[in-house]
Every structure is written in C-alpha cells, then in structure tokens.
Design a protein around this nucleic acid. Sequence first.
DNA 1: GTTGGCACTCTCGAGCGTTGAGTGCTAACG
DNA 2: CGTTAGCACTCAACGCTCGAGAGTGCCAAC
Lengths: 371, 371
Amino acid sequence: MPESAMINEQNLSHGSRSRSRVDLTERQQSVLRAVVEDYVLTAVPVGSKSLLQRHRLGVSSATIRSAMADLEAVGLLSQPHTSAGRVPSDLGYRVYVESLMREAQLDPTDQLMIRHQFSQVQLTSNEWLRLAASILAGSTRSASVVTPARSRRARFGHVQLVQLADGARLCVLVLADGNVVQRRLDRSAVDRVSGDTPIGQAELDAVAADFNARLSGQAAPAVRRRTAKPGSLESAVGETVASLLEEADAAVVEEIITDGITNVLEQPEFAQGFKLRGVLEVLQRSDFFEQLIPLLARRRGVHVIIGHENSIDAMHDVSLVFAPYGQPDQALGMLGVLGPTRMPYPRAIRTVGYLSSLMNELITSHHEHHD
Amino acid sequence: MPESAMINEQNLSHGSRSRSRVDLTERQQSVLRAVVEDYVLTAVPVGSKSLLQRHRLGVSSATIRSAMADLEAVGLLSQPHTSAGRVPSDLGYRVYVESLMREAQLDPTDQLMIRHQFSQVQLTSNEWLRLAASILAGSTRSASVVTPARSRRARFGHVQLVQLADGARLCVLVLADGNVVQRRLDRSAVDRVSGDTPIGQAELDAVAADFNARLSGQAAPAVRRRTAKPGSLESAVGETVASLLEEADAAVVEEIITDGITNVLEQPEFAQGFKLRGVLEVLQRSDFFEQLIPLLARRRGVHVIIGHENSIDAMHDVSLVFAPYGQPDQALGMLGVLGPTRMPYPRAIRTVGYLSSLMNELITSHHEHHD
DNA sequence: GTTGGCACTCTCGAGCGTTGAGTGCTAACG
DNA sequence: CGTTAGCACTCAACGCTCGAGAGTGCCAAC
C-alpha cells in the first residue's frame, strides 16, 4: 500500500525552496533513509547489495534495486556513472531532513556537557562565541560559523568622554543593544575649538550628559540631524558618535567567528583543495551572513540549506545548518555549521538547535536578569 | 676565482638558525639565484637547459650542470628524483634571501598606493588591520596574518562606570596602551552591597575617580592587591578590573586577522587540501604568534623563517615573512605573510617591510601627535 | 675550465586488458 | 501482482607495458 510520507515539522523550519511534496511508499522511504545514512557514513556510493547487509530490510537486493530505480526517477537519488551505486541528490537530502530523520533532541548527556562548558566562561567577552563555534565544529565535524549578536540598527545608548593620559580624548559609545564601540576624537577638530577655553574632563562630562539626555535610542541619521553646527566641541563629538553608529550599521556582522575549517578539509569531497576556494572566500567575507539575517529574523528555528538550494554558486557543494539566537528586536546573531552536502544532518540540526536555544537562554537571563 | 658571497644584512634580520656561511663562486651564485627565481615562478623543477634559455648566463648547459651539482653537494639544491631538474632546498632559499636577492625597497608607486588606501580608513577600528592583511595577501599572493597591537603586559589606564538603561552597570576599562575592554559588573555582587544605599551614577563616578587616582599604570596583580575587602562596591569593581586586566594579559593576541588563505590553496604544492590542514590549524590558534612576540620585541625588522627552520612540524612546508609594528614598550603587534617555501621572497620582504614601517609611522603619529 | 656528445635514468602519459561492483531486464514463483 | 533469482552488460579502477621526453653524469676534446 503506498502510504504518503508525513511531513514532520519537528520544531524546525527549512530553506523552503521546493517544498515539493513527494509521495513515497514505505519501502522507498526506508531505502532512501538507508542510502542517505550509509552514504553520509562511508562517502562511497551505496549499492543494493551493501545496503542489504548493513540494514535489515526484509527484502532481496533486486527489490531494493527497483526501489532505487524509482527513487532515481523522482530525482531523489542519482548515480555518478552507470555501474556505480546511488548517491542522494540535494532533493533526496531535503526529503530525508524533512520527513525521514529520527531524533530531533540532543542527548541529555551532551546537553549537560555543553551547558557545563558554557558555565565556565564569561558571557561578555567573545570568548563564549568561540566556545560555541568550537563545540559546533567538534560535535558535527564540520566548519562552524558564529556571528556576534548585533541589533539590525545601531542605536544610541550612552556616551562617555574620557580624557586620556596622552592628551587624546576617547569617546566610548554604548549601543542600545549593549555592545560597546569607541574611538578617539579627532584631535585637530577638538583643538580648533579649544582656542578660548581649555577642555578638561569637566567639559567633556557636560557634553556627554547633554548627549545622553537628548539622544537615547536614536539611530545614526537622527543623531546627525540633531547635532550642533560645526566649530563646537559638541559637533566634534556628534560627528564621532554618528560615524560610530553608521559604522556599526554598515558592519552588522563585522566579525564572524569560525572554527573547524580543517574538518571539512578532511572530507574526501574536498581532497582537491581548489574546491574549497569559493567556500572559503564566502566564509571570509561577511556579506553572505548579512543576507541571512533577515531570513532569520522572520522565522526562528533551525534552517537547512542544501547544496543547490543556495543561491550562491560557490556553495553548491555544501550545506548549511544554522539558527538565530538573541532577540529579534534587540541583538540578533546566528550560529551554524557548514559542511559537504553529505553531512550528518540529524546531529547537526540537533546541536545547532540546542546551542541556539541555550545561547538564547543565557543571553536573555544575562540581559534582563529575567526570572 | 672563488669569491665569497657577501652577507648582506639589507636592514633585515633573519631566523638566524644556521647562519652557515657558505662560500660560493660567482657562477654558483648566479645559478642559484636563477634556479630560485625560475622555480618560484614556474613551480617546476628547473633543468640546466631551460635555465639556459631563460637567463643569459654566458655559458653552456654542461657548465651549468656542473655548477648545479656543486650546489647540490653543499645542500643548496636538491632533485626530487634522479632525472628531474633541481629545486632549491630550505638552505638554498636562505642563502638566496640573505645574499642573492636584489631590490630591498618597495616600488614608490606601490608605496603611494598603499599609503593612499590607509588614508581612507579609520585607524581606531580594526578595519585598518584588515586593510593591512588584504594588501599583504593581494600583493604577495600568499596568506597574510596581522595581530592587533597589544602591550605585553596590560596596564590600568582609566576606568569608567556607566549605569545602563536596563539597570546593569558597565565597567569600561581603557588600558594604558589605548585599547579598550569592557564588562558588565556582576549584578549579584553589586546588589549584595547596595542594601543600604541605592547605587546611582554619582556613586559609580566616585568609585571610578578613586580608581583612576590610585591605579594608573598598574598591572593586574597590583590592582588585585590594592583592592578593598569584599562586600563593597569598590571590591566588585576592583575584581572586575583585575579580571579584565588578567584576561588581556592571557590573550595577548586574542584575535588574529588573516586574509588570502585561498591564495595558498591555489599553489600547486597544496593542491591536496590535507597538506594545508596543519598550517590552518596553527593559523587558527593564536598561541603560535604569541611565541613570536618576544623574538619580535628583541629585534625589529623583517624576519624570515623558511620551511624546516620553523620549530613547528606542521609548518615545515611553508615560509613566514613577518615584522613587528608599534612600540616595544607600548603596544606591539605583528604582521606578515605565510606561503609555500617557494615564495616570492623579495616581494614579500619588501611589502612586509614597508607596511610595518608605515603602520609604525601611523600608530606613532596617531598616538602622540608626534612631530 | 669549458664544451659537445652520449649513454643512462626516471617520470609521465597513453594504450590496453582484467577485475569486480553494480545495474537493468526477464522469467519464474507464491 | 509484487518479489526474487539469474544473467548479460557496463564502466570505473587497477595494473601493466611501452615509448617519449626531459634531465643528468661522465668523458674526451678544445
């Protein structure tokens, strides 16, 4: 009896490219699942016979062959050449991820171990992002990517002006999302206005207090609008603050933290280094992850992008499993893994999912002392 | 007449492993130089005949062969197999770098272009380190590494305590070298002491002023010693400051900026990705560059480490060309390139040298308004 | 000391069977 | 009608040989 595969949302949303609803018999499902899992494990095209002896499907190789032929006809499997075993297509992986995969929860033991590691480290420093990246990379044996939590739009929080020992003045700007950026004031601009009265810490404090009273929550354009005319200390500060805000806007994810690149180097599909070239380039430039942010803001949960589903050509041979963390309205970041399409999806999805919710929890309780 | 090669210091110091002084005839020098330059260009073992037609040495191939045999006997050349051309050994590159290379100065046009690019970018943000990395990578077609300028020992400069909108208190610490770190105060610790009097910005300012008066220039241990007993706001701040200083100490180069890794992926010697594995791992972990810092503090100038001269096994197939920038007593950083031993040394040394002196100049004039 | 000549070595790539895993098809079976 | 055993077929991978070519070392002559 052909029985249609249940689409099992499993608390995660997907790339949603081709939600092509494929009807498969139960046998076809088992075979597809077996092929995916064997291939992920061995990296060798899997044939009907080897499938037979690794999984206890109660049928003969001939039957499996015919199932495989069916699956190939629907575009879920393909063979590298005529007389080789089958390999899952991108679509095949998709179906596997959406309806054939078991176990969506991370093993409680692992959960505890991860949680413990996070308890050891300061949340403020970006050491904890590195930790997340390292855990991700280690547990999935893929490359991992973590971006710091940044608000989509940088907003003024609090400014502090500091007279330094060497005579320069430092402008420390706390953004509304809690991040801190700083820059020295342009000395020549300050000197120009200091002709009449020398500028000391008192003057700086006064200007800072004024800014703090007037600009709380404002974004870069508003700050620029409400800034005094040139020639004053206020204008120099305003210029600096505005420019800091703009810079924070531009570089939404200015730094991305990666780990485990060597893991994917080890995968046989990337044995010839040049295949990695494009991927590495994308990973280095941060623009790509900026594109991802809106998508993440719209739908929470774990996203999976498999091979050609990715709009970027260089990423056609890799899959991404990633999720946002943080609050959409406040600071939002993402974390995920990048590996060959032949990726241990269950493990990756579990780990990314757990880590994202854990980091959510940590960031929230830390931010709001929320309880 | 055998004429000994002049060791030409060229304003740069070297790995200084085996300053084995080798006496070479003028012909041998020319041949070695030609072999190195050809091989760097083509990546193909160079034979006597092909050498003949690319360079106008006024002799026959047989003569060159004999010279090559001599060079091989001294260990400056080697052949991959009996009937192949010659390839420079690590020692061969060393001799080339120390005495055979011409032109130690970067082309003035390039100098101007680089200087111009730097004028476009804020010195404070680490955008300018990225720029340096990008220039290095682009101009040498190797991977580049830049570390931020950090002082060897983090010292207290100035502290500022800020009451945030969400109720938390932020501790912003300006280090003596001008870097800024920050961390939220441990809320529970603060709450515990605030029983009697609520803590507002005024109280925070008072504590900060006290710290600034007492602790200028101190390192972590001193701060810890001179911190009040537990239970006060002072102690909470002191704890945070000390811990920030310690963290800055531990992570002397906590983040390293790299660029152009894909360049070295393109090199034929790394066509099989796994060879890069070890190198990438070293590049990712920052410990290695920490080891380099003392060396750099001792001797300024461009350093070259070729292949096996490197104490780290994973780096036996690559060369490093790097130099420090900044002031040894203040903040010190390094920049350099990493590529196959078959590297365009003259170009790399020129670029690294120029960039290091340029960044020195910029950082100095920016720091001290020095003129 | 240099050079032309020459025999020798060794890698590289093309060509070519052999092997074996894997397939598709078909005819028999329950 | 779905399942299965059997069989002919395909095709990458492997190992082999063999010639080409680049490069060498050596030696006798200049």
